[in-house]
Amino acid sequence: MNPAHYLYLSALLFTIGAAGMLLRRNAIVMFMCVELMLNAGNLAFVTFARMHGQLDGQAVAFFTMVVAACEVVVGLSIIVAIFRTRRNADVDESHLLRH
């Protein structure tokens, strides 16, 4: 097992998450794709930590998880607040800031 495999997996997950962000319209599902990307990043960090034989990668992954949790909290409450006004979780509905 060499690190490249894990990193390929991480890259693949990240790409799927990025594509999902572009393809899905539901705000919550888009958010889930963001979480997917963050997780892919965490996997890469853990792999690096094992690669170098130091725990720094794991510490960074830890902090990423903390920050992701905060982000989810605030992001979801925003979505809830927006939903209350619009009755709709479609991201494409807010497109007025255009040319």
Binding site: D92, H95, L97, H99
Partner: peptide
């Protein structure tokens, strides 16, 4: 034309 207003 690039400013479509769509976040996606």
């Amino acid at each position: 034309g690039m400013q479509t207003g769509y976040a996606r």
